[in-house]
Design a protein around this nucleic acid. Structure first.
Lengths: 316, 316
DNA sequence: CTGAAAGCGCTTACAG
DNA sequence: CTGAAAGCGCTTACAG
């Protein structure tokens, strides 16, 4: 049943047909107990409901399907305890590996513990300093610099940053990229122009009022991601303002949804497909005993200009 | 380690502490091989990336977490072969049960096969005629009738139906509900006013042109779901039309996103949370040997009136 | 090349 | 009550 090359293919097919007829079910638990290979890969992210992760998951799925691995999914909602429980479950099931977007505050020991117990890990979207495992993510600081520079080139000088947190490497990198671009253009960065937090549509929507009452009335917003940007655009619309005309709004990720948003969202492509594909390939390679470099691999982001950004427009 | 009541709790704790110290990992494969209980539940839906299913999955997760079941997720993308592969995998892993939103065209034999091999099933969102298992979903025909009646009460007489297919019970039920409401109000139903297909934002967006060139220029659209409705609203906006003013658009599901859409979407609450919660509870009950009636349980939908519907407005 | 035996790590029924 | 043995269904190394 294992498609061994030692058995003639005609015999194999005959046996398989008969097996199917009598309803034989291969017991993977027993096989796994013996071989200590389970064919299971765990994937844990902050929230699969988030389209950003959903797009990554889809390409992971495609890749793992190809090597006939079953994958188990879990959300950790940035709760370390939930993440640990999931890793424990994987160890108990004898999973072959894990792909994770580590929860905020994940200590490198958590990753090392998994590795030491024979559960190779690969990181996506976020990095954990000190964890000697491969990591795949976008070049966040470069990406937000791209976004900020685009607004500066349009003539904006007062630019806010909406969303994100300093609790993750991604959050720090994106804020840094924004500051870099501002300073490189000789523009002052006002700490009050940062509205930390929003990462969802709802939160972006809720941040509208605060954005509109910011000191110095910024004319543009670099948003944490497409979700918060779309939420903000919806909030602005409720306030009678149209993104791209009255206020410039730029997102991050280039979700499938960005192109059909109202108005179409200018954003930065963050290579979700690439991240998922490469992470899964790297894990599969590790499972096959290949040596995979434990370095971070940064996907190069690209600007996607659409209708939500334009020349600055002063509000009263 | 199984928290048996036969062991004094102090002893248990002492052993557990020691076990943790020496890095003992409980082998669930071995236990499962012996007990033929795995603690694994499979969940298979059309597409987890779809927020409709994501909301259901979230409440399933909450419920299964409570009874300490691990769940394995899979998309079938309405591909019967993919669905069968997943069920096979569950059987091989000795999963305890499966919650499924059956792929279009799933024959009752597929469900029965799983059940006969000791894999109890519970259906969500869609039903399979002839499969004697519990099923949880909204009352679709009633729900679309609610939506259609709302438009009729606003004064609309030419109402289109955008999205859905006759390939599922849900599709047939929703179209039936729409027809029922139209006919009850003495309005004629024009088959040409049905634009079958769209179930995503992109597809709803793409359907805009066809909607705008429909014979008799309908003044309103009952959409398959919130996603296609939001896509259509975005498409209308590109054409210079605003939903709720120029054209009335009503969705279905009441996703979290509906309330913050632009404009806020009138829709029908479809009880995702309820469906997920009840389906998971029913499965857990079955796993505990309780008798669960194999009847369909219909969640009662409710109308949510927001800004995307209004009095009819003739276009030129 | 074929076939019987050992063993993966648990749980459970049973002997002491 | 305690402890040793059997067995879940595979795979693999080994004897014939």
């Amino acid at each position: 049943m294992r498609d061994s090359a030692l058995v003639a293919s005609t015999t194999r097919e005959r046996i398989k047909t008969h097996a199917r007829e009598i309803g034989y079910i291969y017991n993977r638990r027993a096989a796994s107990l013996r071989t200590s290979r389970s064919g299971i890969v765990g994937v844990v992210v902050h929230d699969i409901m988030n389209p950003f992760f959903a797009e990554i998951l889809r390409s992971i799925e495609t890749e793992l399907d190809r090597s006939r691995q079953t994958f188990i999914l879990s959300n950790h909602y940035d709760d370390l305890e939930k993440q640990r429980n999931f890793v424990d479950t994987l160890l108990q099931l004898g999973a072959d590996g894990v792909i994770m977007s580590p929860a905020i505050g994940t200590p490198p020991e958590d990753i090392r513990m998994a590795e030491d117990n024979g559960l190779p890990a690969v990181l996506i979207a976020r990095d954990v300093e000190g964890a000697a495992v491969p990591a795949f993510r976008g070049d966040d600081s470069y990406g937000t610099a791209l976004a900020t520079r685009h607004l500066i080139e349009l003539g904006h000088t007062r630019i806010a940053m909406v969303g994100g947190t300093d609790g993750t490497s991604t959050g720090r990198d994106r804020y840094q990229g924004y500051k870099n671009a501002m300073e490189a253009a000789g523009l002052s960065v006002d700490a009050a122009w940062r509205i930390p937090g929003p990462r969802t549509k709802q939160a972006g929507f809720d941040a509208t009022e605060r954005f509109l009452s910011l000191p110095g009335k910024p004319t543009a917003a670099v948003c944490w991601n497409d979700l918060s940007a779309i939420g903000l655009m919806n909030g602005l619309f409720r306030a009678g303002l149209v993104a791209g005309r009255d206020v410039s709004v730029i997102g991050y990720d280039d979700l499938e949804e960005a192109a059909i948003a109202t108005p179409a969202l200018t954003t930065v492509w963050n290579g979700q497909r690439e991240v998922g594909h490469r992470a899964a390939s790297a894990l599969v390679a590790r499972l096959n005993g290949e040596e995979v470099s434990a370095e971070q691999e940064l996907i190069h982001p690209e600007l996607r200009i659409r209708a939500s950004t334009g020349k600055p427009h002063e509000r009263n």
